[in-house]
Design a protein around this nucleic acid. Structure first.
Lengths: 364, 364
DNA sequence: CTGAAAGCGCTTACAG
DNA sequence: CTGAAAGCGCTTACAG
């Protein structure tokens, strides 16, 4: 295994200066041995490595090197909430996957940073993050961490957070996609719709509301989707203010269940539910089963995202497809290109489409 | 939104020295304004912040600060393979989730680093990673990156990679857990077993082998599980060399399908399959369905991990439960404690248990 | 309450 | 092919 036991020990740092001294050469020569082999004889280089090995010098200190070179070799990914929440959300995980492809292509690390939502402790982590640039993912318009990042004047790419001047933006047409989902249901003949929503603001008032004031949402995608649902419903001549919206604290199955129970317990029960994520829709499916409601016989359900499991539920989920992997990949590549002064790929909106599967049908 | 447009721009770095000069104070005072409010008058402190705002100084440079303080505020997580592969594996994602809880508790970032497997490009990324310590997850015994990390003499925790002196190790009793899975099947009356295995070595010979030489595996958990299966089978008086083992390149449903097709196509078809992960088992379930084999009627299947979806397949999967979240959390907390010179929680083996669900039954 | 000095560990022109 | 010098941007005793 090549491990000599003591290597596992946490040791005093050995510096290039000490290696140089042991060899009677200058620190520049030690540095050159690691960074510019052409600047010294192969023999001397070998001697440097040998002395390094003996003294336990593992090569130039990454922090000092980063300071000198003005380059760290890592990008930060800022997420609105706790990371543990992100890892529990397949959509976020797929996004990370996409970013990781881009960073690996470039030989960079990917530093995951917790956002400021719900008790994340240390906003300093973002200001102090040792990175060359940032991907900002899914933050509320008024999240102070966005400004903390912007003020650092590093290259930044914004994802699902429109509206900052001069910063590349990657997203989808949330409004159009949501409208398409609602139109699908309306086309099927549904007249009593309900919405299972993401959180709308960082304050998360939560619970039941209606579709009449999309603008109060400070999360861009939530706002746009509410707008899309509302416009399709209005177009159909239905009263928007009578469409119940349940705001979920998190995009989880559990929250989807809770929302479904609230919505399906109403006097005038919706015959179809529009969900802002597949996770929420999965919870709705579970709740419907528990309530003895058949899907799509008694209730139609539309998701959003088209994560892998959407094709495997019973019934399989009708949903709006978007590629979170592509989103992460594009954002990552734009950032990487900007770090290297390369011509970045064009930022913009990725395509979506409605995937009709088994969870929607005309009302019973 | 508090964004003044130009903040999004990538700018020349403004330094504390410039802020100090603009104000006619020393850089130490600027530093104190940010780091030790008690060291200067509130008024002066306000002036410093004002000058900083005007000049576009976003606070002390994280890299320089890290060099000076000998502390970065991030831990590295080293994974054997491409990160995009990790993100596609629920077990790895749950592990990351656990680590992230520990890093968030401590206000640290989490730097994800790609391993050296299958064309990961840049081993330098690990040697250069700007972190205070490492979690090494799931690496082969002979992976050179392990030594690269160990040589840096930073605090390290090893996960699912036993056998490095003086380094805390977190894992499970893979051998015992695997033996329990095999015993369950044998107890049910199965005599013709097959194994759907992880990759055994970094070279990944792949395809079919048998259970007679567990020791050739250089991935610790794979080796231990093979050993566990073999010992239970030997105990039952069955010939170990007649148990087919299919080595999968990755822990994915697709690979599980391919393995199942190979194993179930053999002249003397196994009546039960032991899978090293739930992902592989899910693929086996799909393949069985495609082949017209009923589970557990015609074929029993045992997984490993007990990821969330294991309870939702049809039939629900009998599997070995382990908590990847706890694994990550413990590893993360040990590392964090060692960074802070706190007394770390005890390293060691986490519990496992066999969860009997619907995918196993006596042979038909 | 404020500042001068030393130094964290390295790399990069530049001179020889 | 090798080395002396400057400096990346900051923080921390320490002296006043």
């Amino acid at each position: 295994m090549g491990v000599k036991g003591k290597e596992g020990k946490v040791g005093r740092r050995v510096t290039s200066k000490e290696v140089a001294a042991a060899l009677g050469v200058s620190p520049a020569t030690v540095s050159n041995a690691y960074n510019r082999p052409d600047q010294l004889s192969p023999l001397l280089r070998e001697k440097v490595f040998e002395a390094a090995r003996e003294l336990g010098y593992a090569g130039p200190d990454p922090v000092a090197r980063s300071l000198r070179r003005r380059r760290v070799g890592a990008v930060g990914v800022l997420y609105s909430d706790r990371l543990s929440y992100a890892f529990a959300d397949p959509a976020a995980v797929e996004f990370f996957e996409g970013v990781s492809v881009a960073t690996e292509e470039a030989g960079l690390g990917m530093l995951l940073l917790p956002g400021s939502a719900r008790g994340a402790r240390d906003p300093e982590a973002v200001g102090n993050a040792v990175v060359d640039g940032f991907v900002i993912y899914c933050m509320a318009d008024d999240d102070p961490l966005v400004d903390v990042v912007l003020e650092r004047r590093l290259p930044v790419v914004l994802v699902d957070h429109p509206g900052v001047e001069d910063v590349p933006y990657v997203g989808i047409d949330d409004e159009g996609a949501a409208a398409a989902a609602a139109e699908h249901l309306i086309g099927l003949g549904h007249r009593r719709l309900g919405v299972v929503s993401f959180e709308l603001t960082r304050q998360m008032t939560g619970g039941l509301a209606d579709l009449s004031r999309p603008e109060r949402a400070t999360f861009g995608p939530s706002r746009a989707r509410l707008r899309g649902y509302a416009s399709a419903i209005r177009q159909a001549g239905l009263p928007v203010s009578e469409v119940p919206v349940y705001e979920c604290a998190e995009s989880t199955r559990e929250e989807g269940r809770v929302a479904a129970e609230a919505l399906l317990g109403m006097e005038s029960r919706p015959t179809a539910l529009l969900c802002m994520s597949d996770q929420l829709a999965f919870g709705v499916l579970e709740a419907a089963r528990d309530l003895g409601l058949s899907v799509p016989g008694d209730l139609s359900v539309v998701g959003f995202d088209d994560v892998a499991e959407a094709g495997r539920t019973s019934p399989p989920l009708t949903t709006v497809h978007q590629s979170h992997v592509e989103k992460g990949l594009l954002a990552g590549r734009i950032l990487v290109a900007r770090l290297g002064e390369d011509e970045p790929p064009e930022a913009g909106l990725l395509p979506t489409r409605l995937i009709e599967r088994g969870s929607t049908a005309p009302p019973g």
